[in-house]
Amino acid sequence: MEILQRLGRNTIDTFASIGAASLMLYGALIAIPKWKNIRLTVEQMYVVGVQSLLIILVSGLFIGMVMALQGYTILVNYGAEGSLGPMVALSILRELGPVVTALLFAGRAGSALTAEIGLMKATEQLSSLEMMAVDPLRRIVSPRFWAGVISMPMLAIIFSAVGILGGHLVGVDWLGVDAGSYWSIMQSTVDWNEDVINGVIKALVFAVVIVWIALFKGYSCIPTSEGISKATTETVVYASLAILGLDFVLTALMFGIS
């Protein structure tokens, strides 16, 4: 009986927080964008985009290199090392690019957003904004949302490009796969709409989910040091789970059924 009761309460709580999160997003995005807000968004793009760039570049490079190394050792058994290019390109463009970027983004930028907004709440900065007749949803939440949604697909594109170059570095320059076949077979296999655009769409969906979770967790956290640390952890955990779950759904929709 008690279990049922708890289950019911948890379900209601879940719906309540989904509703609250939707209302928050609605409140943040309903406003007509003003020139000032674009400047704020650019400022936030520096925080969530530029500051995540280094980790994205490094991990993209290494993942491309590892993919090439792993792929080569398998493909060389069948004398098919010419297919290294498409293997690296497809796995990065379709899967690793968006997913790994999203996971890193959740850890790097998502947690920072939650902590920042949580601290602003704890130090009454959000309240004081409200008392200064400035809507914190529009002034604080909205620019961060847009900055994240714009930056994250760009990071994913950069990740993919760097990964493919990393694959070239190991496959061609180190292991001696023919550079011509690396690129040309890749070109004849990779399709712009099917592979590249779908990857970007994935990244875009992940971006919305990560930023949404991060902002909501920060905005609704209990304004104590313990509450903020809990909210930050939850952001990373929920965002990561959401990314992996959504990745399956999106992959099934995009590539599974043809």
Binding site: L119, T123, E124, Q125, S127, S128, M131
Partner: peptide, 11 residues
């Protein structure tokens, strides 16, 4: 105008 206990300056 409101003066918050912590000041609530934007850090």
């Amino acid at each position: 105008g409101m003066l918050f206990q912590s000041g609530a300056l934007f850090t």
